[in-house]
Amino acid sequence: MSVLAYESTPEKATAKKARSVEPSGSRPTRYLDPGRIILYSVLFVAAVYYLLPLYVMVMTSMKGLPEIRMGNIFSPPMEITFQHWVKAWDSACTGLYCEGLKVGFWNSVKITVPSVIMSIAIASVNGYALSHWRFKGSEVFFTILIFGSFIPYQVMLYPLVIITRELGIFGSLSAVVFVHTIFGMPILTLLFRNYFASLPPELLSAARVDGAGFWGIFFKILIPMSVPIFMVAVIMQITGIWNDFLFGTIFAGIKNFPMTVQLNNIVNTTQGVKEYNVNMASTILTGAVPLCIYVLSGKYFVRGIAAGAVKG
């Protein structure tokens, strides 16, 4: 068509003019302009780049060891088998115990659920008080709290070991929950304080005139308005605590190792055959929880990650 249009006979030119329409109404959408093509190709390449390792992991986890040794990591398995997944879950050896990842999974659940609930419960009340019920020294209090998030965790490990020992909880699930709750405090308080501070103060004044007190306002007015920020906090905490390795290793005690620690023990054994298929299956299983949360919560997850980026 464009070839025809460029032939400069007068009749053709007028014909083209007649065909081109006066702009009016909504602009016609062009689905295939060059910008879009480039955009989608870049996105496609990026997606492939990041999906490839996952693909290799899934494929490897379904192959037998002889097939893996052939070295064709991209080729699909000749014979699909899920026995390595079963082994990873049920009977892979971590150190002396051969009960698989399921022990670690349940430990992780037992650590994550109370830690998430406690840290969010405390931090949201903190943020609420710091944003709307200022007391003398509340700014100083807040500054100290935020300062806490700039201190590297490693510095506090030894004192925390002593503290948990003195509390008599060292080497138990409560110790890990305790530590996670404490370390969640600065960033979560900041998150909640900033969110609550953005709500109109007149709303709280109105609620006070209507006879709601500190807790009444919090539970009846603020929480129903703040579902998004609670979602963000939950996602941030679940992914953060689930992926934690350090505190789990130190505070939980051998029987209570979370999934990440168990995974490390499975993958990093120095004895016997390296079972790549079992390792891959274990890794996917461990990563499945944050992955599922990502898929299920979509936009909240991105916000959670962005908010957690301050965490460092």
Binding site: P200, E202, L203, S205, A206, A207, V209, P224, M225
Partner: peptide, 11 residues
């Protein structure tokens, strides 16, 4: 009391 920004409980 009546406020400038209405201050109605949105939920």
């Amino acid at each position: 009391m009546v406020f400038q920004s209405y201050a109605l409980y949105p939920q």
